[in-house]
Design a binder for these strands. Structure first.
Lengths: 338, 338
DNA sequence: TTGTATGCGTTATCAT
DNA sequence: ATGATAACGCATACAA
């Protein structure tokens, strides 16, 4: 019976060659034909596999990347994790999943772990403003810039906000609202507001904003909307919510207020969230290009033919109909549901 | 300026002690008080971190576990990945995420990778019937038994099916249906059917089944339900779907058929899927105890005070109201939405 | 072209 | 109790 975990030494003994020869065969370096065959045979016979830990120690490269992300439960995060994992796998890189729960202490702990584990790089979606990152390990940030030296990848949130405004205008809205939570932090998604304002102005579309502060309850929105009901009808005929998650909440509020969606009021969210991750859209929405964001993060991290790291990369978003806006069959700019 | 990646040797030199002493301090082994202080100071000064790769090579233990799962996009999988990650983190274990897309070749590739990477164990949710697993690495299966030697963790699918039938009976249903997809594979979720039949029989509740074969389109269900419409009303007043995902699809079909839910027909799914992972339930459902499943997998894998590995562990499910059944305020067995 | 020897950073076994 | 040293499995510079 062969050993449970054969090493190169075992393979060398089995094949009757030297250790170095085995190493060369394993790494595809030139070696005499007859030797190569014998070594390959021995490898198969013993079922040999390289030990990444010994290899990593020697090369100081581990082909492993850590992903810091709040969780994998919420659809945007889960989707991101999936696509980043796929992009890494395609390049034969391993991925350490680090669910941080957005806890600053835990995030820092994971950074430490990543360093101990000698990862080749870190991709992080963290809102922690004072995360300490070692100079040594390459880092790519998602959705929040972490300084000039660290590239940040995000979707084009400004354009997304603008697109939402334009869509609402195109679909016949005359008076719209923008609803947002989580205002305090500086991050890319915050640009959705500015983009929306810009879009409204360029279309001369009157708008109002309701922006919650950190501690506020979502019920503030209920009060806000209730206040804007006149003769049983909402004074807004269009609402842009900063996320699909919020849009879903607002949808329920509107139902309670007896407003029909999309007949009385049209609703656009942001993210491109689908039911069960892969089915239809939860609401009409500005879709983030999650797969492209993932691919870009990995490409930047592994520095594939990129001479210089850009500080901020914004990827194009698109509009998708999801039942909470008027349908516009035949419209040029209309994305369909897969 | 200090070195980018100081080693124990550097710490020893800095503290003016021997290498072995540093190792002892790092690992909390007894060491002279004055030495310990000096070493700790040097560690802080140089910002030293152990190298897990050197440690893993030496100890042949890596404190790393691989999770094989189809993806992290679909809510059940994403949630499972999150909770397993948390359970491992609590024990200071790292987790390699291996999204397999249910591809058999990729699954096998990941098993190989896990072996190369010297993981201490593997947790796998895979429907691949002929996956080759090395004897050496501990393996825990989720939702599908992979042989006597490999423990399988799942929720109590039989009891869940039974509970669904009993709930429908309790809520006044007189004629129900069971709808299922993905029939061919032998796995734990298949027991939902048997449990449901059992529950119907014990309550003398008439039932019918529609079970799709592997290649079938979901539209078969449309036809099935349409066929059971008489005078504009569905002959079923209760439907149990094998997953929430299917229940969501059926919900849309019922809407098209002008059946009101839950007034005309009540609907129960399975999984406990929530909107956006953390909000309200998508439908009334049999909730899988995802956190407990995760915890059990990790505990079994790491063999915490378990003398013997059980071949199959079934964890209790619960019913949750999610809007697609009649509300039963005050009912004893009623779970509420968090 | 092939074999030999050294070192990666750590732990553990020795003498001291 | 502390210091020196071998070994973990691999890659590589160097000798043959």
């Amino acid at each position: 019976m062969s050993k449970a975990n054969p090493t190169m030494k075992d393979v060398a003994a089995e094949a009757g060659v030297a250790l170095g020869t085995v190493s060369k065969v394993v790494n595809g370096l030139p070696v005499g034909e007859s030797y190569r065959v014998r070594v390959e045979e021995a490898i198969r016979k013993l079922n040999y596999q390289v030990n990444s830990y010994a290899q990593g120690l020697k090369l100081n490269k581990t082909r492993t990347v850590a992903l810091l992300i709040p969780n994998t439960q919420e659809p945007y995060y889960g989707s991101l994790a999936y696509h980043i994992n796929s992009a890494l796998l395609r390049r034969s890189y391993r991925m350490l999943l680090c669910s941080t729960d957005s806890d600053m202490g835990q995030e820092q702990e994971y950074i430490k772990m990543a360093r101990q584990n000698k990862v080749d790089g870190i991709i992080g979606l963290t809102y922690n403003p004072n995360l300490v990152i070692e100079e040594g390990t390459p880092f790519i940030a998602i959705d929040r810039s972490m300084g000039q030296k660290i590239p940040c990848v995000a979707s084009d949130n400004f354009a997304g906000g603008q697109l939402a405004a334009e869509k609402l205008a195109d679909l016949g809205c005359r008076n719209v609202a923008f609803l947002r939570t989580g205002a305090s932090l500086t991050n890319e998604p915050n640009k959705r507001k500015a983009g929306f304002e810009n879009g409204c102005l360029s279309r001369s579309l009157p708008y109002e904003m309701k922006i919650l502060n950190d501690g506020d309850s979502l019920e503030e929105f209920d009060a806000f909307l209730t206040k804007h009901i006149q003769n049983g009808r909402l004074t807004f005929d269009g609402i842009f919510c900063v996320t699909d998650s919020l849009a879903y909440y607002i949808l329920k509020v509107l139902k309670r207020l007896n407003q029909r969606v999309p007949e009385d009021v049209q609703l656009i969210g942001f993210d491109g969230t689908r039911h069960f991750g892969v089915q239809d859209y939860v609401c009409s929405t500005i879709v983030q290009p999650v797969a492209e964001i993932a691919e870009m993060c990995v490409a930047l991290l592994l520095q594939e033919n990129m001479s210089v790291k850009p500080p901020l990369v914004c990827l194009p978003v698109s509009y998708a109909y999801g039942g909470t806006t008027a349908e516009t069959p035949g419209a040029a700019n209309h994305s369909e549901q897969p």
